[in-house]
Amino acid sequence: MKQSLFTFIKKLREFLANKLNQYNTTLPYVITVIVALFIVVGGINLFVELTETLKTETLATYDTSITDYIISYRAPTLTSYLKFMTYVGDIYGYLIVLTIFLLLSLLVFKRWKYVVQATLILALATISNMILKRFIDRARPGIEHLVSVETLSYPSGHAMSAMAFYGFLIFLVTKFNIQKVIKYILIAVLILVILSIGISRIYLGVHFPSDIAGGFIAGFIWVVFCVLVFDLIELFRHDPKT
């Protein structure tokens, strides 16, 4: 993505230089940020469209059908696994993962900034989720809850944080210079973690499937936006023309 941004900025700079005799060298970056914001707004629009259908009969039917199908597989072993995954997507789970990631970043990759970036995305997802929950004010499903919950339902905080945090880790893995087999295994594991955390919330009876979909969309928006901004900042810092 960084190379694509670099190419876009280079072409934009050439275009502006041809059209304007003098222009601020930071202008291409400002325009790129605006384009990134438009991309994010498009994702937000998709999230809003889903939000507006929350009270429709059709969505309620899908929510019920999917939930009934998932909870029909309840069994002691699967319950233990999905309870574990839901704890992985909780605050203590992220503290453990962040600690491990910090050690790997300092000792192996020698790049502590990745931990700061991942923590920032997780914080943004968490704070925005709290705001969205209060704004939308959707109650939890009225079925048996296998874990205790205290907050509102939509969008799922677990799904949103998992997509934002582990989705960003997937992006980082694609950048790391490691063997392809290891890279593919790590990506597969991270995708499994994201999906398991999302499904666990339906399985445990604390979320509607649409809560999970909304959380995944919102979390993905944060990943795209932050990756664009992080890459843009790095390009700006190393650009000799700024």
Results as ranks from 00 to 15, higher is better:
residue 64 T to D: 05
residue 20 L to Q: 10
residue 149 V to E: 15
residue 213 A to Y: 01
residue 168 F to S: 03
residue 218 A to L: 12
residue 153 S to P: 14
residue 146 L to H: 12
residue 61 T to V: 11
residue 183 K to L: 04
residue 95 L to A: 14
residue 218 A to I: 02
residue 171 F to W: 15
residue 183 K to C: 04
residue 75 A to Q: 15
residue 72 S to R: 10
residue 227 V to M: 08
residue 147 V to F: 07
residue 174 T to P: 00
residue 79 T to Q: 11
residue 32 T to C: 13
residue 196 S to Q: 02
residue 154 Y to C: 06
residue 219 G to H: 04
residue 85 M to W: 12
residue 6 F to R: 05
residue 14 E to W: 08
residue 48 V to T: 13
residue 44 I to W: 11
residue 108 V to N: 08
residue 4 S to C: 05
residue 142 G to V: 03
residue 1 M to N: 09
residue 198 G to S: 03
residue 122 L to G: 10
residue 97 V to F: 15
residue 116 V to A: 13
residue 128 S to Y: 04
residue 27 L to F: 14
residue 54 L to T: 05
residue 138 R to W: 05
residue 42 G to Q: 10
residue 20 L to M: 13
residue 117 Q to K: 06
residue 174 T to R: 11
residue 158 H to A: 09
residue 129 N to L: 02
residue 125 A to F: 02
residue 236 F to G: 02
residue 98 L to Y: 08
residue 67 T to H: 00
residue 189 V to Y: 11
residue 39 I to H: 07
residue 95 L to G: 02
residue 202 I to C: 03
residue 171 F to S: 01
residue 81 Y to M: 11
residue 46 L to R: 07
residue 91 I to R: 03
residue 228 L to H: 11
residue 117 Q to G: 01
residue 188 A to Y: 07
residue 119 T to D: 02
residue 51 T to D: 08
residue 235 L to C: 07
residue 149 V to I: 11
residue 160 M to V: 04
residue 121 I to R: 02
residue 132 L to G: 00
residue 80 S to E: 12
residue 73 Y to P: 09
residue 58 T to Y: 13
residue 178 I to G: 07
residue 211 D to P: 06
